[in-house]
Design a protein around this nucleic acid. Structure first.
Length: 521
DNA sequence: ACTGCCGGGTA
DNA sequence: TACCCGGCAGT
């Protein structure tokens, strides 16, 4: 009786002893992969008997009747800490229905019940599972396969888990995901997680652990709703069990290992997400003369591969060398947006380089063209210091962090070597070696500009450019002292002319504390 | 302290 | 976009 209960409720994933398939009598161990109810084979008792698909140690799948492996159950049941893939059944179906009824509408419940009963009823017909399918079961032993092996109690348990998930979803605005996916993914993860212990509220905490991964990432950004869990984002739930069973068919997956994998994967996943008011990860090319910044690792890798390494092949033939040429930088999205959005406004005024008609656009489009799905999702460690030998000559990407006050950082720029191009006026951090030969802007666009650098004193007939800027750029002595900001106007300004009491007579710029437009120097 | 004005916030 | 302001840096 007891063994029967065990068999029926928690045998999946359990290690059992079974007669040797070779017939030599020596028992072998295996893991139960599936249970099938067999109606046609009426045993002596005249009731249905169960057939268990057992994954043997040698990787083969065998089917055994209940009697054949019953002894194994006893053995294992008394032997040690078996990890049952199913929640233990201390609370059975009734409670499951109760929970379910609490969170699901009756219609939904009925639909689900119908669907489930269909599945269960279909079992006898699906007993001839193809080998391929069996293999899949091997791979995901703990993930319940939709059909062909669900007992009613299992179904109930799934309902319970689904109900719990839905309940938590209904109360947590942080996590939204298609219910189907949720139940699917969770039933797997719970089976992995609930290595022991009945399905009680305490086991719910394990699910909480699973779900909490999205909480921290979203806490930083309460304004943006958590994106729905896509099929991809559900992968982390499944992958661990893949890895858990893979190494050895004989052993049930290890929950701890499961957790580790899960967490690591889960931590990888949300990185590419763009959030406002939070740190954003960008990837900066460290190649000489190139400060290209892309938003995805794949993008930067492709950039390096194609532009610098001169490889035309796709990411498939990447040998990882690109990794040395870019670094991951974390910066506030504000800064990034700042830098990017200010590209066009800044470059024309600061750069004396004649802005070709589409000048700022290429860089922007390059940035946006990096929208490739970050499927490569590099988990490489960011070369924080950019200290690899290959990148030693490249400027550290850290300077990007403080772009919000770039003008302050530009003070040292006042690059003594006036031969550097005008783009240098925007650059913020240099190694001596760099400043001597070229300058790198603090933003990506210069990548495209470095080619056509222009002597600062010659603006190539673009004399109509803002006189102020030109003045600054073309007069080294002043530039050394006042490059950081627009040169302070020496002439009178609205404020001085009209005084505070006549503020309404100021030019709007002065009123807004902007650069005076009326008394420009 | 005064001044110019950049960067960013708000409506 | 207009408007405003905090704050930085030069004077």
């Amino acid at each position: 009786m007891h063994t029967r209960r065990l068999v029926k409720r928690s045998i999946l994933g359990s290690r059992v002893y079974a007669p040797s398939p070779t017939g030599d009598g020596a028992p072998v161990t295996g893991v139960v992969q599936a249970v099938k109810q067999e109606n046609r084979d009426v045993s002596a008792a005249g009731t249905r008997r169960s057939v268990y698909t057992v994954l043997m140690q040698d990787g083969s799948l065998k089917e055994f009747s209940e009697e054949e492996i019953a002894a194994g159950f006893n053995h294992t049941a008394t032997k040690g800490p078996l990890k049952f893939s199913l929640k233990s059944s201390s609370n059975g179906a009734p409670q499951g229905h109760k929970v379910e009824g609490g969170s699901l509408s009756p219609e939904v419940v009925e639909e689900q019940r119908l669907a489930d009963s269909k599945r269960v009823g279909r079992d006898p017909d699906t007993r001839s599972v193809s080998l391929l399918e069996q293999k899949r079961k091997v791979v995901s032993s703990s993930i319940d396969v939709p059909h062909a092996r669900r007992s009613e109690e299992e179904v109930d348990m799934d309902k319970v888990t689904a109900a719990m998930v839905l309940t938590s979803l209904s109360t947590s605005p942080l996590v939204r995901s298609p219910p189907v996916k949720v139940s699917e993914g969770l039933s797997g993860s719970w089976k992995d997680n609930s290595s022991a212990g009945p399905f009680t509220p305490s086991s719910n905490s394990s699910s909480g652990g699973y779900w909490s991964w999205s909480a921290p990432s979203d806490q930083s950004n309460p304004s943006t709703p958590s994106p729905p869990l896509s099929a991809d984002s559900l992968k982390p739930f499944r992958v661990p069990s893949l890895g858990g069973v893979g190494p050895g068919p004989a052993g049930p997956e290890d929950p701890s290992l499961d957790d580790q994998d899960g967490s690591s994967l889960l931590f990888d996943e949300p990185i590419p997400r763009k959030r406002k008011n939070s740190m954003k990860v960008m990837f900066k090319c460290l190649w000489k003369n190139c400060g290209k910044v892309l938003s995805t690792a794949a993008g930067i890798q492709r950039h390096i591969r194609t532009i610098h390494l001169g490889r035309s092949c796709d990411s498939d033939c990447s040998d990882g060398e690109e990794d040395f040429y870019y670094t991951e930088i974390k910066l506030n999205t504000d800064s990034v947006a700042d830098g990017l959005s200010s590209l066009s406004p800044v470059s024309p005024s600061v750069l004396s380089t004649p802005p070709p008609p589409p000048s700022p656009l290429p860089s922007l489009s390059q940035l946006s063209d990096s929208h490739r799905p970050p499927q490569s999702s590099d988990t490489k460690e960011p070369h924080a210091g950019g200290t690899t030998p290959l990148s030693r000559s490249a400027p550290s990407a850290l300077y990007l962090i403080h772009t919000d006050h770039a003008y302050q950082a530009t003070a040292p720029v006042s690059i003594p070597c006036s031969s550097s191009n005008s783009a240098g006026s925007a650059s913020t951090s240099f190694t001596p070696t760099n400043s001597s030969s070229f300058s790198i802007s603090w933003q990506s666009p210069p990548v495209t500009f470095t080619g056509n650098t222009v002597s600062p004193s010659k603006s190539q007939g673009f004399g109509e450019q803002r006189s102020q800027t030109i003045a600054v750029l073309s007069s080294p002595p002043r530039a050394t002292t006042a490059l950081s900001r627009k040169v302070r106007g020496e002439g009178k300004k609205c404020r001085k002319v009209y005084g505070m009491e006549n503020r309404d007579m100021w030019c709007t710029a002065c009123r807004w504390k902007k650069a005076c437009q009326r008394f420009t120097d």
